[in-house]
C-alpha cells in the first residue's frame, strides 16, 4: 500500500468574501507501512487534507493515488477507496449508534457483503486489536462503556474494515491519561500487526514525536515541512511562529543546551542528561 498526492488544492466558499484556501498545492508520498504524524494549528488544513484521502472531499485540482489508483479520476468506485482507507474522525464515539458493541463494529464489514462467519472473525479481530474483551464487551451497549472504551470501540469499527491506510484525527482528545495511553498503544499495535500506513493528526507533540517515522507540518493550507521528528522538531522558533511547540522532552533539552532535535521522549532526555553530567564529572 502506498499513497501519492500531487498538487492537491481545495478552496472553501470559492468566489465568496470568505473564500479560504484550506489546502494549497500539497504534494507528498507515503511508503508502505509508514507512520506519518500530521501537526498544524487549528485551521491549518489538516482535517481538510485527510478528508480527501478517502474521497469524502473532492479536490479543486491535483491527484491522489491510493495503491496506484487515482481516486480523483472518473468512474472510481468510492466504496473501493473506503475499504482501503479507514478514517476515524474527531470524537468518533459520537458516531456509535448500534444496540451492542458487536453490531456497531460489524456494521462496516456487513456492508461489504461478507458472510456471518467472516464478519464474526473481523469483529473478534478488531476488538482484540483495540483491547476490548470480546466475552465481556461484545453484547454490551456501546453507550454503557467508559469514555476511553467508547473511543476504542468506535475505532474498532474502522479497523474491522482491515484498511491498508488508517487515518486518525485527534484520537486522544479529551481522554484521561490512562485512556490516552491505551489508545496510543492500541494504535501502535494495529500499525505493527496490520502493517497499515497510519496517519495520525494530533496537537500532542509528545505523541507525534514518539510514534511517527515522519512528521508533516501544515500551515495556511500548505505542507510547509516534512521530515523525521528529529528534523522537524529541531526548529523550535519556526514551529512556535506557526502556533505549534516542541514535545516537552525536546523543549527541556533545549533549555539545557543539549542537541534538542535528537531528543524524542523522556528516555532520550534522561540518557542525554546522564551523559552530560558524567562528562562534567570527569
Amino acid at each position: 500500500m502506498t499513497i501519492k498526492v500531487s498538487g492537491l488544492s481545495h478552496t472553501y466558499n470559492a468566489g465568496l468574501a470568505y473564500e479560504t484556501k484550506a489546502v494549497a498545492d500539497v504534494s507528498f508520498d507515503v511508503a508502505d507501512g509508514e507512520f506519518i504524524g500530521i501537526i498544524g494549528h487549528t485551521g491549518s488544513g489538516k482535517s481538510t487534507l485527510i478528508q480527501h484521502l478517502n474521497g469524502i472531499l473532492k479536490p479543486d485540482s491535483g491527484q491522489i493515488w491510493i495503491d496506484g489508483i487515482d481516486i480523483t479520476g472518473k468512474g472510481v468506485k468510492m466504496h473501493e477507496i473506503r475499504k482501503r482507507v479507514g478514517m476515524s474522525f474527531q470524537y468518533p464515539e459520537y458516531q456509535l449508534f448500534e444496540e451492542t458493541v458487536y453490531r456497531d463494529i460489524a456494521f462496516g464489514p456487513r456492508n461489504l457483503g461478507l458472510s456471518d462467519a467472516e464478519i464474526d472473525e473481523r469483529v473478534r479481530e478488531a476488538m482484540d486489536a483495540v483491547n476490548l474483551d470480546f466475552g465481556e464487551m461484545a453484547e454490551r451497549s456501546p453507550f454503557d462503556l467508559s469514555g476511553g472504551q467508547k473511543r476504542r470501540a468506535a475505532i474498532a469499527g474502522v479497523i474491522a474494515m482491515r484498511p491498508g491506510v488508517l487515518i486518525l484525527d485527534e484520537p486522544t482528545a479529551g481522554l484521561d491519561p490512562k485512556s490516552h495511553a491505551d489508545v496510543l498503544s492500541m494504535i501502535r499495535s494495529v500499525h505493527e500487526r496490520m502493517g497499515a500506513i497510519v496517519m495520525l493528526v494530533s496537537h500532542n507533540m509528545e505523541d507525534i514525536a514518539a510514534m511517527s517515522d515522519r512528521v508533516f507540518v501544515m500551515d495556511m493550507g500548505r505542507l510547509v515541512c516534512s521530515g523525521t521528528p528529529a528534523e522537524v522538531f529541531a526548529d523550535a522558533e519556526y514551529l512556535r511562529g506557526i502556533g505549534l511547540g516542541l514535545p516537552p522532552s525536546t523543549e527541556m533539552a533545549r533549555m539545557l543546551g543539549l542537541a534538542a532535535g535528537a531528543i524524542r521522549d523522556m528516555d532520550d532526555l534522561i540518557d542525554a542528561i546522564s551523559r552530560m553530567r558524567k562528562g562534567r564529572d570527569l
Binding site: 494549528h41 479529551g174 505549534l244 511547540g245
Partner: peptide, 13 residues
C-alpha cells in the same frame, strides 16, 4: 471544565 482539551498548543498557551 477541560477548556484546553480541543485546542492546539498555541491555543492552550
Amino acid at each position: 471544565d477541560e477548556p484546553t482539551a480541543m485546542l492546539d498548543p498555541e491555543g492552550r498557551r
